[in-house]
Computed example of a mutant assay.
Amino acid sequence: MSIEKWWPKLKPSTREWLIEHNGDAVPAEVLAEIAEAGGSATTGGWWVGSSGPSGFYFSDQAVDWIEAVSPQPP
Rank of each mutant, 00 (worst) to 15 (best):
I34M: 13
L18T: 07
L18D: 03
A32W: 00
Y57L: 10
A41Y: 05
I19D: 08
D60H: 02
G44W: 02
V69G: 05
G49S: 11
E67R: 14
D60A: 15
E4Q: 14
S70Y: 02
W65R: 06
E20A: 13
D60E: 06
E16F: 08
G39L: 00
W46K: 06
I66T: 00
S40M: 01
K9P: 01
P27D: 01
T42Y: 13
E33C: 03
F56V: 11
K11F: 09
W17L: 02
P12G: 06
E16H: 10
N22I: 04
A35P: 00
A41K: 10
V69A: 03
Q72W: 05
W17F: 09
W46C: 00
K9E: 05
G44Y: 01
P73H: 12
K11R: 14
G52H: 00
A28I: 07
Q61M: 13
T43G: 14
D64C: 06
H21Q: 02
I34K: 05
S13M: 02
G39N: 08
L18H: 09
K11A: 14
P71K: 09
V63T: 03
L18F: 07
Q72C: 11
W17G: 07
D60V: 04
G45S: 14
G44A: 02
G49V: 04
G55Y: 05
A41N: 12
P12C: 06
G49H: 04
M1E: 12
P27S: 06
I19F: 04
Q61S: 11
H21V: 00
P12M: 03
D60L: 02
S13K: 10
H21A: 00
T43D: 15
F56P: 01
K9W: 01
V63G: 06
P8F: 02
S59C: 08
G45Q: 09
A28T: 14
W7H: 02
E29P: 11
A41W: 10
E29Y: 13
F58T: 02
W65E: 01
H21F: 04
D64A: 15
S50G: 14
A32G: 10
S13F: 03
M1F: 12
V63W: 04
V63S: 08
A41R: 12
I3T: 03
E4A: 13
S50N: 13
M1Q: 12
D64W: 05
W17K: 05
G39M: 06
F58V: 07
W6K: 00
I34P: 06
A37F: 05
